[in-house]
Each structure stands twice: as C-alpha cells, then as structure tokens.
Design a protein around this nucleic acid. Sequence first.
DNA 1: AAAAAAGTCAACCGCCACGAT
DNA 2: AATCGTGGCGGTTGACTTTTT
Length: 219
Amino acid sequence: MVPLSSKNKEGNRGSWTAEEDQKLSQVIEIHGPRKWKSVATKAGLNRCGKSCRLRWMNYLRPNIKRGNISDQEEDLILRLHKLLGNRWSLIAGRLPGRTDNEIKNYWNSHLSKKMKHNERLQNRNRVLVSTSSSAAAAAAQELSEPQNAKLMEGNAVTVGREDNNSKRDESYFKSMSFNGPSGDEFLFGCSNADEGPLNLEWMNRFLEMDESWFTLHDI
DNA sequence: AAAAAAGTCAACCGCCACGAT
DNA sequence: AATCGTGGCGGTTGACTTTTT
C-alpha cells in the first residue's frame, strides 16, 4: 500500500507494488541491471533510477537469500565487523545472498545491542569471594592486575576498573552475609547494587548465565 | 482489551567517487 | 581543468508489527 503522502512531483515513493516490480524485472531482463535512469524510463515507472537500483539490489535480483540469519552467518558478521567496521557492502559481499541493507539492519537491531550488553558485563566490577579471608587475600596477590584489585572486609576481593564504584562496593560487602561452601573454594560474581545482596544462589545463577565470563577470570 | 513502547525493515537522503564531456 | 550525471554507500526515517504494561 502506498501512503498518500508518498507521492510528489519527483515521482512515486514508498513501498513498491507487485506491478512495479514486474515492470522493473522485465526491463532488466532485456537491458540488464545498469543505466538505472534509462531503466526507470523504459519500465514506465514514475520513480528515479536510484530507487529502481535499490529495489533490484535489495529485493528483486536473483539468489537473494530470505529468512533468518543463521548462527554461522551471525558469527561471520561479527568477525567481519570487527575487522572492517561499518563497511556493510564489503561484509555483505562475504555472505552470499545477503544484502548490505539487510546486514546493516541486522546489526542495528540485533548485534549492536548484543555488543553493548557484552561490553557492560566486561565493565562491571568483578567480585571474587572465598569462604576464607586469608585465601581471598592470597588470591588478591596473585591477580594479574593487582592495582585493580581490592581486598574487602571479610572475604571478598573486587577486581575491575578503577572507577568510582570502590566505595560503594566496600560498604556493600561489609553488610553482605555469605553462606558459601566450606574450605577455600572461590566463587565469582559481579557487583551490582541494583541486583540486591550477593549470595550463593545469585552467583550460581550468574555463572549459569555467563560461563565465558567465568573462564576468563579463572585463577 | 487497549494503549504505549519497543522492535523490525524497506526505502529514502545526502555525500562522495568516478567517468564522460 | 571544471562541470555534470550517475552509481554506490552508510546513515537515517517512518510505517508497520510485535511485545509489554
């Protein structure tokens, strides 16, 4: 359906109709996908060449892959984006049947959020808790970035950015009650005042949710 | 059930590069 | 060398759909 507001002196705008698609396809079949202004004229379409090109590239041309982006494709997009940045046409060139517009949309609606979420997890202050305060102190010494580690009252060590969370964490752990297993077993969690008191159940939930985070900080 | 908010995606816009004149 | 037309690209918009409140 073409909205009323989508027509002006420059020609049709808005969504393409099946009839327009058919006309465009017919002309391209004869003259090839080039000289878009002439294609638009030959097809008798009241649209600019640019619009015709876009419709062909993103919708009408053969071998366009429809349907959800697979896990393999997503992985490839992530890796290519890391390498190339927002060079959507280059990325799309590595994914047969996918268009630059589709990749860009997928990135903006799915992957950028995923990236932000991961970044947020990485930037949280990490917390190491032991049932033994001496073991916690020893662990703090062994940390690869001791300048970023802080031994808290009792048996908790925070590891993370040197930011303004330290004071909050300190009082937070003073009031914490920890009912972990006996011995020097370490558990990992993540300090976040919004998520309520830190306890074993909560930490186990966290670990189930994000195993990769755990292995990254194994001591 | 209805309204609001969030998500999706096709299409448009403006800029730039490049070839033709 | 300067200008113009065209195609290609990435950013953005807005209509429509889905989910949440």
